[in-house]
Amino acid sequence: MKALAARRHHRFAPVVLLLLALLVTGGVYAVLAPGQARADSASTQDIETGKKLFQANCATCHGLDAQGTDNAPSLIGVGAAAVDFQVSTGRMPMAMDGPQAQTKPRQMTEEQTSQLAAYIASLGAGPAIPTDEQVDGSKGNPANGAEIFRTNCAMCHNATGQGGALSEGKYAPSLERTSARNIYQAMLTGPQSMPVFNDANITPDEKRDVIAYLEAQREGSAGGATLGSLGPVSEGVWAWVVGLGLLIGAAVWIGAKSS
């Protein structure tokens, strides 16, 4: 202690303190920042393989160094979460041009996906793939999730997440079979027409509540067949087809002559 006290007026003391402060800030940031944490855990091997995969499958549109071209955006800084979302749902690599990339059977294995994610994450910090804990719907509050969903998501995805139309052939897809991890990633990265809901906007806990709400929807509805949960239009179709269909059938039967 005496040595510290003796040297605290040393002329290099401010410099040392400044370095220390920078180190602590950087260290804390490295621990807390989501993108960095994941990228660091990936081995250089993964990043190398990921780069090769990228150059073989993605570089045509996104550029050799993922810097983006006229056809596709830059992927520097989009983070591992965006890569995992796009590739694990089969949206990327894109099969054909259209109003928006569609889901299809995934083209990359689980391992290849994480290698690609590691490569993109190594190019610049971005949102990391959420942990299983973060996307566990059973730990969320579905009532709160329902309220958040109504205010932020239902105008495109429909009240129960059945999907809805956007302009010019674009659409908000149905969330009926979307995995919890993909739902979380979509909120975090805002793919295609979807806005980004960052952690300040909808906190990680609230994101989990939304997942809880959507998972509660899959348990079916009270009251019988959901008829697609599309609201009054599908109910009207069923009223005409089943209701009036059966009743007119009965009327024909009753009105028929017994002879």
């Binding site: 239902a154 495109c156 995805h157 009054p232 009207g236």
Partner: peptide, 12 residues
Amino acid sequence: SPISAGAQPDWY
């Protein structure tokens, strides 16, 4: 404030 996609009245 909120309104959901597929918000329609009853068929009539």
